[in-house]
Design a protein around this nucleic acid. Structure first.
Length: 464
DNA sequence: ATGTAC
C-alpha cells in the first residue's frame, strides 16, 4: 500500500490559507486518518472541507481542520493572577501545606472562579487530592485526575452480616474467583455491556483506539488503592432513602475507575491542554482545554464515556459477585469522586472539578470509605455552598507511599488486621490502614457537608 | 492511576 504523501504546496494549490495553522493541522489529520487513501481523494476531501468548514465542525476526525478554518484556537502563554478566587478549606489543621499551596496555585488560574479543599486533602499532581475547583468554560484534565471516573459502589443485601464469620473461606474464594486485580489480569469471559455501543468509540479516533482495551478490561479493578470487599453495613438513619430498617446487613463495596481507557484519555488530552494553555512552572499541570474548542468538547465527551465505563465496571463486578452470592441487592449507592460536572455555582454555570471529592448536593447519597480496618460512611449531602457541594472521598493519606513503606512493617499490618477481624487478600504496605488519616477525625471536620446514613465495616478485603 | 518512557 502506497503511503500518502502530502505537502504544504499541495494544500496551497487547492486554496488553503498560508496564514495560521490550517495547513499543518490538515496534513497532520490526513496523515493520521487517511494514510492509505489516494492523494487525489484526500485532496478532494480537503477541498470539500475548505468550501464549507461549518458543516464539519464537531466531526471527530476533520473537525479540528474545520475549527482552524472558521474559529482558530489561539495558543498563548497564560499568566497566573496575583489574587486567589474565593475558597474554603475544611479541616485545615489536618492538611499538609503542600496540598494547600497546590489549591492556592489553582485558584490563581484565569479560569478559576471558586475552590475548596476537603478534610482528607493531600498533595497530588496538578490539583491536590481532595481539591474542588470551579472554572469558567474550561476543563482541566489534571483537575479530574488520571483515573477519570474513579468511584465507589456499594451493594447491600438482605443477608445477616454475621454470616461472614461462619463462612470466611467461601467469601475469600468468591473474591479470588470473581475479581481481577493488577495491570494485566482480566476476566476470561467478558460480559457484554451497552457501553460498548456508544458512538464515542466510533467518532473519536483517540477513543476508538482504546475500544479493545476497554472491552477486555471490563469488570477488572486495577491497582493502587483500588479494592473490592465484603463487609457489614449498618444502617443508622431510620429515615433512609432505601426504606431499610435500622440494623446490619451484608455489603459489597468496590473502589476503582476507568482502567486503561480513562488513563489514556487523560494522557492524550493533558498533552493537548499543555500545548494550548502553557502555564508557568508550578501551574503547568493545571493546563486546561477551552470547552468551546474542538479538543475541549472532545475531552468532555471522552471524559463522560470514561465515567460511564467506570460505572459499568463496578456494575459488572457487583453482578459477578451477586451471582456467586446467589442474591439480589436491596439497594445500591454509588458516586464518582474524580470527575468534572457542569453545575450552578453562585448563580453561574461553571465546570466543577472534583479530584478526590464526593459530590454532596442536598439529598445526594455517596460513600466515603475509611480504610481496610476502619468503617466507611454512607452519606447524604447537605448542599453546602462553601465546599461547592462536596465532601471528602475517604480518610486521605497520612503517609506518602514511600514513607509508608519505610515506617510500617508487615507485622504491624498483620496485628491490626487481626484486631479488627479483617481478612486481607493482596494489599501492599503502602495501602496499610496506618498510612491513612483517622476517618472519624475527617468525618468530624465535615459535619456541615454530609449527614451519616450508615456505615460499612470491611471484613474480607481484596486489593492488588 | 497506567502495559510505569517521546
Amino acid at each position: 500500500m502506497a503511503k500518502l504523501k502530502l505537502r504544504g504546496k499541495d494544500l496551497i494549490e487547492i486554496g488553503y490559507p498560508q496564514k495560521g495553522k490550517a495547513i499543518s493541522i490538515a496534513i497532520d489529520v490526513m496523515l493520521k486518518n487517511f494514510r492509505r487513501e489516494r492523494k487525489d481523494k484526500v485532496l478532494q476531501r480537503l477541498k470539500t472541507i475548505l468550501k464549507n468548514p461549518e458543516k464539519y465542525l464537531g466531526d471527530g476526525i476533520v473537525g479540528k481542520i474545520a475549527e482552524e478554518l472558521t474559529t482558530p484556537v489561539h495558543v498563548e502563554a497564560q499568566q497566573l493572577a496575583t489574587t486567589r478566587a474565593p475558597f474554603t478549606i475544611f479541616g485545615e489543621n489536618g492538611i499538609a501545606d503542600e496540598a494547600k499551596h497546590q489549591l492556592y496555585t489553582a485558584l490563581k488560574l484565569p479560569i478559576a472562579k471558586a475552590g475548596a479543599l476537603m478534610p482528607d486533602g493531600h498533595s497530588g499532581y496538578g490539583l491536590p487530592i481532595g481539591g474542588v475547583l470551579a472554572a469558567k468554560d474550561a476543563v482541566i484534565p489534571y483537575g479530574v485526575g488520571v483515573d477519570i471516573g474513579c468511584r465507589m459502589c456499594l451493594s447491600m443485601y438482605d443477608i445477616p452480616a454475621s454470616y461472614i464469620d461462619g463462612h470466611r473461606d467461601k467469601y475469600v474464594n468468591m473474591l479470588q474467583e470473581h475479581t481481577k486485580f493488577g495491570s494485566y489480569e482480566t476476566h476470561k469471559r467478558i460480559n457484554d455491556h451497552e457501553i460498548f455501543e456508544r458512538s464515542e468509540f466510533k467518532d473519536i479516533p483517540t477513543v476508538k483506539k482504546l475500544f479493545k482495551k476497554a472491552y477486555t478490561q471490563l469488570g477488572s479493578s486495577g491497582g493502587g488503592n483500588h479494592f473490592v470487599e465484603f463487609g457489614i453495613v449498618e444502617i443508622s438513619d431510620e429515615h433512609n432513602e432505601f426504606n431499610m430498617p435500622v440494623g446490619t446487613y451484608l455489603g459489597i463495596l468496590s473502589h476503582s475507575g476507568s482502567r486503561g481507557l480513562g488513563a489514556n484519555i487523560a494522557k492524550h488530552y493533558t498533552k493537548l491542554a499543555m500545548q494550548q494553555t502553557p502555564l508557568p512552572g508550578e501551574a503547568k499541570n493545571l493546563a486546561w482545554l477551552d470547552l468551546n474548542t474542538h479538543d475541549g468538547q472532545e475531552y468532555w465527551l471522552a471524559m463522560n464515556l470514561a465515567g460511564d465505563y467506570a460505572s459499568a465496571c463496578h456494575h459488572d463486578i457487583h453482578k459477578r459477585l451477586g451471582k456467586a452470592l446467589g442474591a439480589r441487592p436491596i439497594a445500591m449507592v454509588e458516586n464518582h469522586h474524580n470527575f468534572a460536572w457542569k453545575e450552578m455555582v453562585y448563580g453561574e454555570e461553571l465546570v466543577v472539578h472534583r479530584k478526590g471529592a464526593t459530590p454532596a448536593q442536598k439529598g445526594v447519597l455517596g460513600i466515603i470509605p475509611g480504610s481496610m480496618t476502619a468503617p466507611g460512611f454512607i452519606v447524604r449531602g447537605t448542599g453546602n455552598k462553601h465546599s461547592l457541594q462536596s465532601a471528602s472521598h475517604g480518610a486521605g493519606r497520612q503517609l506518602s507511599r514511600r514513607k509508608a513503606k519505610q515506617t510500617i512493617t508487615q507485622s504491624d499490618i498483620k496485628k491490626q488486621l487481626k484486631d479488627c477481624g479483617v481478612t486481607l487478600i493482596g494489599g501492599g504496605i503502602d495501602e496499610a490502614p496506618m498510612a491513612y488519616k483517622n476517618i472519624h477525625q475527617v468525618m468530624s471536620n465535615q459535619t456541615e457537608l454530609v449527614e451519616v446514613v450508615g456505615t460499612f465495616t470491611p471484613k474480607i478485603v481484596r486489593m492488588e
